[in-house]
Design a protein around this nucleic acid. Structure first.
Lengths: 261, 261
DNA sequence: GGCAATCGTTTCATTTATTGAACCGATGGA
DNA sequence: TCCATCGGTTCAATAAATGAAACGATTGCC
């Protein structure tokens, strides 16, 4: 059962080691993180750099994400403006709930935050843009997974299920149950599974062929997760996801709980 | 003297076939454009798709640029906000000149438009965002090349120098002369070399290690290229490039004509 | 100031993934 | 109905990826 270890995939995987708190990486660090041989890593890095996907500081020899992303995201947006639609939807979701709103999208094996509109409350949830969201510990991740294909679910859960907080669910069976619940209602909840005293509510949005693309969510301090708030939150989040689905030209899949819309 | 044709580079090169007027490409078209075997192209495409760099419409099987660019450009911007700085600079350049302002950045072997602020005049130059700029026929290209390393210059000029308009310079020696002029003054001009009756003025901007990153430019109808306009335009463009260099945390290289600043 | 660790980089024999012609079934237009 | 073209698959031949070791240059530590 050889998965076909394409060289291209290996090279592109190096980019996944960037995150909001690690924006610059050197050769040796790449080699250590990826487990590749230093020579191999170097060849990948120079290849990526030559196409503008990385940028090497000529003095420190350290690598950063390159200008190609500027170029291609620009290009993608002209033909397929998602970023703008996301911004609008999140602003409204933030306005109606008063909480921090975020949207995520699946890119490869990662669910990545693509935009955040923060709450203006003093006690609020602050998120890093561009961060990867663990599938099993966030509402966004659960909302996405619930409507993903079986092999994606399996792939996501077969990784190590890190415990991020006291209430993180690390049992694969329990997560499967949670996903069933999400499928039934169309929304996902978390309560202290990503960070202590932080709750999340999320709903998936879909693409043109009924394929789930990512999720829309809010995050808020657990103290504000009172029952009456929650029902309002759920409605708002679902509406936001529906709207984004529409703006994206997407369709809900057949197995989506219609009554939940 | 085998150049070592890395598979990774070949795969990433496929992405270069996207442009503002071709935002979706099928397998066979990729194979034809790139000259790769269909099987090879397919393997590259699925690899790119699996990492989110491409997105395949499940019905038409056609490929588009994927969501990974959203993710990584977001990530790049949080640590290194260029897009915003560019927007500000271009708006001011547009305000002071009244003409269409654009910024470009080198990504791999291409000089790509990353942002455009259009003139509000009726008779104006309209540009497509994300388009690749030919080095030899645009002011942006000449401004960049003039301060690039010798091997980049050679690489850029060794490609076929397509004639885009009546006055396009396709003679390599003449272009070298133009580059000398640009080095002396710090600004590049074009007059009808990219499109008839369109003029351009451009200046390079630099990165943290004194390396040229791209250029800032304006494009305008040739009728407005009167001598007094031109001197003002040059000053405005140079100032804009200087500002962008500063915002980017860049430095001018030692061989930059200081009196030109 | 000198020693040691670590950095990025190069080399080269070994291995393994990449390559491409031919083939397949599906789709769609003439 | 036929033919062209689409996306995708197969498999032997081949060419490219690999990794241990070594190199020189910094860097940091005693």
């Amino acid at each position: 059962m050889s998965a076909g270890p394409s060289t291209v995939i290996k090279a592109l995987t190096l980019l996944d080691y960037f995150n909001p708190s690690r924006t610059a990486i050197g050769l040796s660090e790449f080699a250590k993180l990826s487990g590749y041989n230093k020579a191999t890593a170097l060849r990948f890095l120079t290849a990526l750099e030559s196409k503008g996907f990385l940028e090497q500081d000529i003095e420190t020899r350290i690598y950063k994400l390159g200008p190609a992303f500027l170029r291609f995201s620009q290009l993608r947006e002209t033909s397929f403006p998602l970023a703008e639609a996301v911004k609008v939807v999140l602003r409204d979701l933030n306005a109606s709930t008063g909480e921090t709103a975020l949207a995520s999208v699946i890119a490869g094996e990662n669910l990545a935050t693509i935009d955040v509109v923060e709450s203006r409350k003093l006690n609020r949830v602050t998120l890093e843009q561009g961060a990867a969201l663990p599938f099993h510990a966030t509402a966004s991740g659960l909302a996405y997974l619930a409507f993903a294909t079986d092999d994606i679910i399996e792939g996501a859960l077969s990784r190590e299920l890190t415990s991020h907080a006291g209430k993180t669910i690390t049992d694969q069976r329990k997560i499967a149950d949670r996903l069933d619940a999400v499928r039934a209602t169309g929304v996902a909840h978390t309560d202290g599974s990503f960070e202590e005293d932080v709750m999340g509510v999320a709903a998936p949005y879909f693409g043109p062929s009924g394929k789930v693309c990512g999720s829309v969510a809010i995050g808020f301090p657990a103290v504000r997760g009172t029952p009456d708030h929650m029902t309002a939150f759920e409605e708002d989040v679902k509406r936001a996801a529906m709207r984004l689905t529409g703006l994206r030209g997407g369709y809900y899949p057949d197995d989506f709980p219609e009554w939940a819309l």
